[in-house]
């Protein structure tokens, strides 16, 4: 393992404080922040999300690219993560919003980045997050009429669906075939 990798792992396990620059830009709109693995992370609330993203978008050297938008289920809360990049490199900042599982609502960012149309649809169907103001939040990958949010940790698939149900022959072969073969059947006399 190279020295750089070791350093990286060490810095993942022990987050460092934010840089003064980001602290100054975003300090009043965040509820926390740190630098993990050399990448700044800002934690914010649904109300402050759009002002914060707007501000990052309008810096003199703006974080103008949305490279990823995804959801995380932490058990007690659902988190939506926005990954923003700036310049031509991969200088990235993560913006994270914590949402209560019971009422996961967050404003859409399709107004800032039209690209967010697709990942927001995906997060909505997989984690049950409502993106308020999204132009067309139908299922993207799941079939129409699919019930439930499959990427939540406590999701169980529908075992009564004939296309998905476990195979009885595999689950309980004895019940299907009437017990293990008797001695005369196996030929052992």
């Amino acid at each position: 393992m190279s020295e750089g990798q070791e350093q990286q792992i060490a810095s993942v396990s022990s987050p460092e404080p934010l840089s003064a620059e980001l602290q100054e830009i975003a300090g009043d709109l965040t509820t926390g922040g740190c630098v993990r693995a050399g990448r700044p992370e800002l934690l914010t609330t649904p109300e402050n999300l759009l002002p914060l993203l707007n501000r990052l978008h309008e810096l003199p050297e703006p974080y103008s690219r949305l490279t990823d938008l995804c959801g995380v289920d932490w058990g007690d809360r659902v988190q939506v993560v926005y990954a923003l990049c700036r310049g031509y490199g991969a200088e990235m900042v993560l913006v994270k919003v914590d949402l209560p599982r019971a009422q996961a609502e967050v404003p859409t960012v399709t107004g800032l980045w039209q690209l967010a149309f697709w990942p927001e649809r995906e997060v909505a169907e997989m984690f049950g997050v409502t993106f308020v103001g999204h132009p067309n939040c139908e299922h993207l990958l799941l079939p129409e009429g699919f019930v439930g949010y499959p990427l939540l940790k406590d999701y169980e698939y529908d075992r009564s669906n004939p296309l998905l149900s476990p195979d009885p022959l595999r689950e309980d072969p004895d019940a299907v075939l009437g017990g293990p073969p008797s001695e005369d059947e196996t030929g052992a006399s």
Binding site: L142, G148, P150, Y155, Y157, D158, P162, L163, L164, S165, P166, D167, R170
Partner: peptide, 14 residues
């Protein structure tokens, strides 16, 4: 087979 929410357990179901 065991946990997937979206995979049909065999084409022969269709």
């Amino acid at each position: 087979y065991h946990h997937a929410y979206s995979v049909v357990r065999g084409v022969d179901r269709v």
